[in-house]
Amino acid sequence: MNFDINAIFQIAGIGIITAMIHTVLKQMGKEDMAHWATVIGFVVVMFMVIRLLDQLFQEIRTIFLFQ
């Protein structure tokens, strides 16, 4: 396995930290900021997953002679 296994831990870490930030901001009474923090964390993780998906599709395209 030559790929970067750290991405898994990064995604899990971002999720946990975002949940913590959400809880803290909620306790401080800033509901809308809490939701923004969640959305931004989600978008960051989404970008990572989409990059992986792109890599997989490129690889399949080269392997299975789709060109």
Binding site: F3, A19, L52
Partner: peptide, 23 residues
């Protein structure tokens, strides 16, 4: 805490395994 992140995490793991198998 966040079901959305759990979904993305499992999707990421599935992609990892499929990329590994593609080689």
């Amino acid at each position: 805490q966040k079901p959305m992140f759990a979904f993305l995490l499992t999707a990421c793991a599935a992609l990892f395994i499929f990329i590994f198998l593609a080689d």
